[in-house]
């Protein structure tokens, strides 16, 4: 439970910072940055949090189900714009996958290829 408490604590601190200092990033991303900072500074030991973190990240998809259900409920309300939305979302998602992946692959150090 120590791991869970630490992860919850960082997530909560992130929300507090977001609300009080109006940092233009969501609380969970601020919490992630602070948590990484503490891991690098060795204030938090990896073994304290590893087990809890693995449990949460292994089931990351579970936490998205409520969002997908909420999004599906809105689909009938889109009206005439749905074609434009579908083209925009599908086209743009594949464009980002392609551009990011290609650029990353191009910039990959050549000598490392064998070790992957």
């Amino acid at each position: 439970m120590r791991g869970f408490a630490i992860l919850l604590g960082f997530s909560f601190i992130g929300v507090v910072i977001h609300d009080t200092l109006h940092v233009p990033l969501p609380g969970n991303v601020i919490g992630l940055l602070l948590f990484l900072g503490c891991l690098f500074a060795k204030i938090i030991k990896l073994e304290w949090v590893e087990e809890s973190a693995n449990l949460l990240t292994r089931h990351l998809l579970l936490f998205f189900i409520p969002y997908v259900v909420g999004a599906a409920a809105l689909v009938p309300l889109l009206g005439n714009d749905w074609v434009s939305i579908a083209v925009g979302l599908i086209g743009s998602t594949f464009a980002v996958l392609w551009v990011t992946g290609k650029v990353a692959l191009k910039m990959q150090p050549k000598e490392k290829e064998g070790s992957q």
Partner: peptide, 23 residues
């Protein structure tokens, strides 16, 4: 959506937990 607020709240610590594989 009210029922599952516990799950949506847990997305916070689950995102923080991504620090472990990054580290």
């Amino acid at each position: 959506q009210v029922d599952v607020e516990l799950l949506t709240s847990l997305l916070g610590p689950a995102t923080v937990a991504l620090g472990v594989p990054i580290y």
